[in-house]
Computed example of a mutant assay.
Amino acid sequence: MFWHRRRETGADDAPRPLPDDARRLRLRFVGQVQGVGFRWTSMGVARDLGLTGWVRNERDGSVSAEIQGEASHVGAFFSQMLDAYRHHPIRYTVDEREDIPLVEGERDFEVRY
C-alpha cells in the first residue's frame, strides 16, 4: 500500500502549473473506507500520478476528496485505487462525483483532518 510514503521536499514545494486539460473533481467515497488506510492510499496514488488536492474522513463514515490535475491522470486515479486494493479487497463506491473549479497554486496532495 501507499501510506508509508513520505512527502519529499525541495522542487516539489513550488506551485504546480496547471495543464491545459486540467480538471478538478469533488468525490465522496462510501463503504469500507475508514480504518483501512484509504486516505493514505489515496494520497500515494494521487502523488504518484502528479495530482494535487486533499482527502479526509467525514463524521458519517464516508471519505471526501478533491483531486486535480491532467485529465488522463484524474481518470487513472480510479483504476489505480482499484489496483492498490486488489490484494486487500475492500468494498467502496463513489457516491458523489462533481467537476468543480480549479485551484490555482496548489502544491501537493494531502490528508486533511
Rank of each mutant, 00 (worst) to 15 (best):
H4S: 13
R7N: 07
V94S: 03
E98S: 10
R86A: 13
R16T: 14
R39C: 00
S42L: 09
E8Q: 11
G50T: 09
A22V: 02
D108K: 09
F29E: 01
A76C: 02
R91G: 11
R47M: 12
A76N: 11
V94H: 13
F38H: 13
A14P: 04
R16M: 14
A11P: 13
S72Y: 05
R24S: 01
H88P: 09
Q68G: 04
I90V: 13
R24P: 15
V94T: 09
P19Q: 06
P17Y: 02
F38N: 05
D12Y: 01
F109A: 04
R23P: 00
A22K: 07
E70C: 12
L49S: 06
D20E: 15
P17H: 03
S64C: 04
E66A: 03
E104I: 09
F77Q: 07
G35E: 08
R112I: 00
R47V: 07
G69A: 02
E104L: 11
D99N: 15
E110G: 10
R86I: 08
D20I: 11
L51P: 01
H88T: 10
A84S: 15
S64M: 07
D21C: 01
F109M: 04
D99S: 14
M81E: 02
M43G: 03
A65C: 06
P101D: 01
R56Q: 14
V94A: 07
V30S: 11
E66M: 08
E98Q: 14
Y85V: 05
D13Y: 12
I100E: 10
R6N: 12
Y85G: 07
Y92Q: 05
L18N: 02
Y92A: 05
G53F: 08
F38A: 00
A46V: 08
R56C: 15
E66R: 07
H88V: 11
V74S: 02
L25W: 10
W3M: 11
F109L: 07
R56G: 06
E96W: 07
L82N: 14
H88S: 15
F109H: 03
H88N: 15
D95I: 06
D108M: 04
I67K: 06
R47L: 08
N57E: 13
Q68W: 01
I90Q: 03
R97I: 05
S79Q: 11
R97V: 11
P19C: 10
D99Q: 11
R56P: 00
D21V: 07
W54N: 02
G105Q: 06
N57P: 06
E104D: 15
E110C: 05
H73K: 15
R6Y: 09
W3V: 08
A46Y: 09
D48Y: 05
R86Q: 15
A22E: 08
P89V: 08
V74Q: 02
Q68I: 03
Q32Y: 02
A65K: 01
R39H: 08
R39Y: 04
G10I: 03
T93I: 09
G75W: 06
P17M: 10
V45F: 10
Q80P: 06
H88A: 15
R26Y: 13
V63A: 00
F29Y: 08
